[in-house]
Computed example of a mutant assay.
Amino acid sequence: MATGKIIKALSGFYYVLHEGEIYQCRGRGNFRKKKVSPLVGDMVEFKADNREEGYILSIEERKNEFVRPPIANVDQALIVTSATRPDFNALLLDRFLVLVEAKRIEPIIVISKMDRLDEDQVKEMQHYETMYGEIGYPVILSAVNDPEAMDLIQSHLADRTTVIAGQSGVGKSSLLNSIDSRLSIDTDEISESLGRGKHTTRHVELYEISNGLVADTPGFSSLEFADLELEQLPECFPEFVAVQDGCKFRGCLHHKEPKCAVKMEVEAGNISSQRYHHYLQFLEEIQNRKPRY
């Protein structure tokens, strides 16, 4: 019996990395009975007589997991958003940030396609770089074949399991190919008629890059806050957490409550009014969510 990490799941087989070797395994039938499915990123115990015929015996407890994409035990998320084509969307970026914060995953923001901007647009992206940087998020402005940006990204990858997140067409797969030329992950041009990219990644797979594991995924097909409770949302905004002890009421939702420290910081210009507005939109979305039975 040995311990390893699932780095790919495809057609009922699980590919387990153990001491530099990959073993093709099947899951045992009792997983189905327990309604547990092994995920890419799982640490597992397995038994294999050779590298082609192994069986997964047990799955270690997960520190986090996503359903779409199906992946577990992620340390950090590289959230890729483009400056143009598709246009930069701060609301969508904040949605991604909330989703990964809710799983206690550290985000790194990459703004791609900086080489396609005029001077005013560059200044706008630099404004966002400063704003998110002050919250505490690493922000990397990236252009095509930008060695400095690639070096910065690679410096974050060592000894960590990283998931790439972002809408279609922002250049996630191109970015991975730039980081490591040995990869030949399929990329696709933007569809001119739709103004967005086609999904080119078909399954979740962990690649060994820069002494870490990086997941190229089919993207986050669900961006809804299905599992997020109302009380959890303020915890997903680090700048709110930093001042919330100053709120009059414990468990303040920073909405209609009086003497709210977050609202005071927004009015003083110390917290982004745009981020706060997005927070209120998310709050309303969770409040109006239909109950699941």
Rank of each mutant, 00 (worst) to 15 (best):
L39H: 05
K63C: 02
N50W: 02
E45N: 15
V74E: 03
P69E: 05
K63A: 01
P38G: 06
K33A: 12
K35I: 11
N50P: 10
V44W: 00
K47C: 02
G54D: 10
D75R: 05
Q76C: 09
S58H: 03
E53S: 13
R68P: 08
L39N: 10
Q76N: 10
K35G: 14
K35W: 11
P70Q: 13
E61H: 09
D49Q: 03
S58C: 00
K35F: 13
S37V: 05
E60P: 03
A72L: 12
R85L: 10
P70S: 14
N64G: 14
E45T: 15
R51A: 14
V40D: 11
S82Y: 01
D42C: 08
K35D: 15
F46A: 08
V67G: 11
G54V: 11
E65W: 05
P70C: 07
P86A: 07
N50I: 09
V67R: 14
P69Q: 09
I59F: 03
N73I: 01
K47P: 00
V44G: 00
Y55T: 15
Q76F: 07
M43S: 13
Y55R: 14
V36H: 01
K47L: 07
E61Y: 01
I59M: 13
R68D: 07
K34E: 13
P38R: 08
S37T: 05
D42P: 08
V44D: 00
V74R: 07
K34W: 00
I59C: 05
A48W: 01
K63Y: 11
L78F: 12
N64D: 12
K35L: 14
A83M: 10
P86F: 02
Q76G: 09
D42V: 05
A77C: 08
T81F: 04
E60C: 05
A48G: 00
P38H: 10
R51K: 14
E53I: 02
F66W: 13
L78W: 07
R68M: 10
T84W: 02
